[in-house]
């Protein structure tokens, strides 16, 4: 393995340990890792932003696509928001960006997110399918209708009296959905932890010296977690 890769693995491993140490207690190593990550991410984004301007703006412009001059001007005008007198100019490119964004997403939103979903729900079968599918479809339809009912706030009377059972069903349905989403979130987070632990165990620890450095890193971390007033040195974190 070349020296560059070794350094890369060592840095990645140390930052992984430092970042996850926040799960136990705040400490100076975590803060260092956090600030370094934010700085590195900002730097990476700036490099890509400049590269994007070069690839998608400057190169076509220098090849004769003069219309890109308008785009460059609009981009520069965005920065007038930092000027006390001409800040209002920045609203024009912003309005164009928002307009294009909404226009693009709206062109298919109605079909993709309303009509298709309504057709899908309306075409659920209650007869001619096996009992379990029919039961599942019935639950689906009841939850969809009751949740839509739940969000009708215009007529408060709809949520009172004997009709209060409908929003209650909706609440149970939504809680079940949130529970499913939360369980999936736990799964996602655990996958991330697994990925990092796997990296530490498969890529870092087999490197020469890593097994000796690991306890030192952990001891330093534990020491850094001791509140400043309770440790002999340093007295501030």
């Amino acid at each position: 393995m070349d020296l560059g890769s070794v350094i890369q693995i060592w840095l990645a491993a140390l930052f992984t340990v430092w970042i996850y140490s926040i799960a136990f207690r705040d400490n100076v190593f975590f803060k260092f890792a956090e600030h370094t990550f934010v700085g590195a991410a900002a730097g990476h984004n700036i490099v890509y932003a400049v590269d994007n301007i070069r690839r998608y703006g400057w190169t076509p412009f220098t090849q004769g696509a003069t219309l890109y001059l308008v785009v460059f001007l609009l981009g520069l005008i965005l920065y007038t928001r930092y000027h006390s007198k001409y800040f209002w100019l920045s609203r024009f490119p912003l309005a164009i960006m928002v307009g294009i964004g909404i226009g693009l997403s709206m062109r298919a939103t109605v079909t993709a997110e309303f009509i298709a979903q309504i057709i899908s729900t309306a075409s659920l079968q209650l007869v001619g399918v096996d009992a379990w599918t029919a039961f599942s479809n019935l639950i689906f339809i009841i939850i969809v209708v009751s949740v839509v009912y739940f969000f009708v706030f215009t007529f408060p009377g709809l949520h009172g009296g004997g009709r209060a059972v409908i929003p209650k069903i909706a609440r149970y349905g939504m809680m079940a959905a949130f529970g499913y989403a939360f369980a999936n979130t736990v799964l996602s987070r655990f996958q991330m932890i697994f990925g990092r632990l796997d990296f530490l165990m498969s890529s870092w620890l087999p490197l020469p010296g890593a097994m000796m450095v690991l306890p030192i890193v952990l001891i330093l971390l534990i020491y850094a977690m001791i509140p400043a007033e309770k440790r002999p040195w340093p007295k501030s974190s």
Partner: peptide
Amino acid sequence: VRQWVTPYKTPYLCSVLAMMKP
């Protein structure tokens, strides 16, 4: 879904984070 599946009917396979699945 909005930019390819709906206008061009491109068959779509999607893999997301578990938390995005719902």
